[in-house]
Design a protein around this nucleic acid. Structure first.
Lengths: 195, 195
DNA sequence: CCTACCGATCGGTAGG
DNA sequence: CCTACCGATCGGTAGG
């Protein structure tokens, strides 16, 4: 019974993992359950022994990723580093997640619009909330004179989208490694392009 | 005859415009020709008097946007400003395009994967080429000592994705206006967050 | 986990 | 530009 439960869980995990890969490649809407079943190695109908619906797969991916980012910002906010260090840590977490859990993070970021209510409203408010907390860290940095006077909301948009640039790095198997990538990104975002 | 041709062109333009709005909202794959026809105000079958296929609409959007960006980088490369100014101008062009032609630029950037060959290969190579030229401007800036020593390819990824952050600004109708947005973005990207 | 199948919807065409 | 309709494919279910 324990073994059966473990087995079932790992098959569901396999489905989620393959789904993340396919949703990233083709998009949620353009991926059929038959495509997914084939990549898992079973018939389409058999998927439904492990998951309830196509949308449930997307929900699992999106909320799993959201939880990881929320947990991280929780612990950052309660720490007492300088603001610019908090911001740097947040960015480094985004970069690491994008490198290590590429497909899941990418899918949760680009395909969440295909969720249905109540999950759609939920994720929307989680995203709004996250951006607000990030903006709060930037405003704190401005008031402490660690960050230059910019519009915090604009800075949040730039930073969050900038890290998603790793997508292209990930697929192109560029010349530089993950560590160099991270250092370059942090340098550019914290100190800009100009020498 | 001239008038009929003009009329037909403008109806086709209306279809392209409505398609860009819907492809941005729901994605290419999740937008049906019946959805599109409804927003244009005709029956689905009637769309085919103006366009040949659903994919042809996406092709028109993607290549129109690509041409505008290529024309801009052509004229920038042949100018003889300092490298950092060329980079700034390129970024300003991206920001302006994103503000003014929001739906088309967004769609061409996120939905081009749904193109079919030979258009898919064509746009892929155009994108590769554009990034290479942009990286060349950054490397020129480094060698002229105007830009700090960073990996040019990484900087390109960050900058191109950062400007697409305007998407969220555009939809959220934020407090700041387009001009302030542009100045904030340029300041952050050129000089970074740190004071 | 499979075979067999469902109603719905898709992109697109014929013919007027 | 519409009515009528097509073959294909979709997400999902029944029953074993």
């Amino acid at each position: 019974m324990a073994k059966a439960a473990r087995k079932k869980a790992s098959k569901k995990d396999l489905i989620l993992q393959k789904a993340a890969i396919m949703f990233r490649e083709k998009g949620f809407a353009a991926t059929s359950m038959r495509d997914l079943a084939e990549s898992v190695g079973i018939e389409a109908a058999s998927l439904y022994n492990h998951i309830r619906s196509k949308n449930e797969i997307l929900e699992a991916i999106c909320f799993d990723v959201a939880n990881r980012f929320n947990t991280n910002i929780d612990s950052l906010e309660s720490s007492d580093q300088p603001s610019i260090r908090k911001i740097e840590s947040l960015l480094r977490f985004h970069i690491k997640q994008m490198v290590e859990k590429y497909e899941e993070v990418y899918v949760s970021d680009r395909e969440w619009k295909h969720l249905e209510d109540p999950f759609l409203s939920n994720i929307r408010s989680q995203r709004r909330n996250y951006r607000k907390r990030f903006a709060g860290m930037i405003e704190e940095g401005i008031s402490r004179n660690e960050v230059k006077k910019i519009d915090a909301a604009t800075a949040v948009l730039i930073m969050l989208h900038a890290v998603s640039g790793i997508e292209s790095w990930h697929r192109s198997r560029a010349k530089i490694n993950a560590e160099e990538l991270e250092e370059n990104m942090i340098m550019i975002m914290i100190d800009g392009l100009r020498k």
